[in-house]
Amino acid sequence: MNVHWRKSAVLSLMSLDSWREKMELQPIASYLRNCIVQYFQKQDFTIYVPGSAVFIEGYPAGLRMALIIIGTVDPYKVFYRYSQNAVEIFLVRHPRQRILQK
């Protein structure tokens, strides 16, 4: 399974680290990125496509949101699109970050 990171996903990880820094927490972007890649590489999309379909204004149709738990904290929201043995990651959000606006 190929996992492609869109520019918006990389920017959302950087935003997440900035948000965590304001709360005096350690950066997590690189660790989170590795966990997300491992999560999608372990999935068998022929049996089940994880997450729910979502629509976000300004983003392509066909997005899905999967909740990925890292450790014992709230699950991270990963917005992605699946097509022919590849996953495109568009956004990564923590549930306590402010609402998505583009």
Rank of each mutant, 00 (worst) to 15 (best):
L32P: 00
G51Y: 03
D44V: 14
I36Q: 00
S30V: 05
P50N: 06
Y48F: 08
P50F: 05
G71F: 03
F45N: 00
L32Y: 02
Q43G: 05
I47G: 06
Y48R: 11
N34A: 14
Y31N: 12
Q84I: 13
S83V: 11
D44W: 11
S52E: 15
S52W: 06
Y39R: 05
V49F: 04
T46K: 13
E57Q: 09
S30W: 06
L67C: 07
A66P: 01
Y80C: 03
R33Q: 15
L63A: 13
V54P: 09
L32Q: 04
L63F: 05
Y31R: 14
P60L: 06
F45P: 04
L32D: 01
Q41P: 09
G58I: 07
V78W: 03
R81W: 05
G51A: 10
I70M: 05
L63D: 03
T72A: 10
P75Y: 00
P75R: 05
G51N: 07
T72M: 10
F79W: 13
F45E: 01
L32N: 02
F79C: 07
I68H: 02
R33F: 03
P50R: 06
Y48I: 07
A61Y: 15
C35K: 08
F55D: 09
N34M: 08
Y31D: 14
G51H: 06
V49P: 01
I69C: 13
F79Q: 04
D44A: 08
M65L: 14
V54N: 07
P50E: 05
G71N: 10
Y31K: 13
I69W: 10
I36P: 00
A66H: 10
G62R: 11
V37M: 08
L32R: 02
Q84R: 09
N34W: 04
N34F: 14
Y39D: 02
K42L: 10
V37H: 02
I36K: 01
I36G: 01
L63Q: 03
A66T: 15
R64K: 15
V78C: 04
R81Q: 15
T72H: 14
E57F: 04
P75N: 08
V73F: 12
G62M: 07
I68C: 12
I56S: 02
F40E: 00
Y31L: 12
Q43P: 00
G71H: 04
S83G: 13
V49M: 09
Y82N: 03
F55H: 13
L67H: 12
F55P: 01
R81I: 05
G58H: 09
C35N: 11
V73H: 09
E57N: 12
A53Y: 07
P50V: 03
I69E: 15
R81A: 14
Y39P: 01
Y39C: 07
V73M: 08
S52T: 15
S30Y: 09
Y59P: 00
E57D: 15
V78N: 00
A53D: 12
D44Q: 12
F79L: 12
A61P: 07
V37A: 05
S30N: 15
F55I: 11
K77M: 10
F40S: 01
V37T: 08
D44M: 10
G58F: 07
L67F: 14
S30L: 11
K42D: 15
